[in-house]
Write a protein that binds this DNA or RNA. Sequence first.
DNA 1: GTACAACTTAGAGTGTACTCTAAGTCAAGA
DNA 2: TCTTGACTTAGAGTACACTCTAAGTTGTAC
Lengths: 125, 125
Amino acid sequence: MEDIFTIAQVAALTGVSIHTLRYYERVGLLDRVDRANSGHRRYGEADVNRINFLKRLRKTGMSISEMQRFVALYRAGDDTLSERRAMLEDHRRAIQAQIADLQEIIAFIDDKIATYDEQERINSR
Amino acid sequence: MEDIFTIAQVAALTGVSIHTLRYYERVGLLDRVDRANSGHRRYGEADVNRINFLKRLRKTGMSISEMQRFVALYRAGDDTLSERRAMLEDHRRAIQAQIADLQEIIAFIDDKIATYDEQERINSR
DNA sequence: GTACAACTTAGAGTGTACTCTAAGTCAAGA
DNA sequence: TCTTGACTTAGAGTACACTCTAAGTTGTAC
């Protein structure tokens, strides 16, 4: 019932490269992944979920070291729930701020584009 | 009437460091800034506007090389207006996509936070 | 006129996050 | 059994965007 995956399958599944998957394990973002007798990695669904979560955090600008802190708290168990919650809330706020910045810059670009339109009208007279 | 500024003033005004201002000039993002007889840089308002524009583009994930392309088009004059316009529109679309990603991830984090709340309620029984 | 902070240059160094290499082992099909 | 491609490791290399250093010059306040 529990699906297991090779590193290539996980890379295809998550869009995280093979090199990066090994790197994330090396720096402790992933717990040591199970190995086959051959030594080859065998990922479980929990690993894949973790990778997808990490991918989202990265995509939204969380640094590797912040993610390491988060994972360390996770490993430390239930006592750290409220701390992890606070981290996520901080990160949520940071993302909201990013969105606000982006929206402001969209408005700025729209202004620029409008100026260009104006310019083109003038040039075509 | 035209205000002129030293590099330190521009750094304070724009939030871009002195080192970075010199770097941007070196890689051609800024046209060669005027110099005093002493050789010290003297920035005009047009320079400051350009720096603020570049700062916004960077903040929204445009790479240095893309900005170089944009600036090159700008230098090439009016013939490139529609090309620059197209670049800005592309960048606008990229920013919109970023915003959509971020919003999706906010929803994901809200889910996680809700799970943590649930967990805390269980633990406190 | 002297101290001292701010400026100049070319070029070297840094931090982050990968990304690749070399040398070797393993698994599956012809 | 042989070949081929996927996998393993430790460690080196890379891209990007700065950021700093060294050695020297300039401007201003006392």
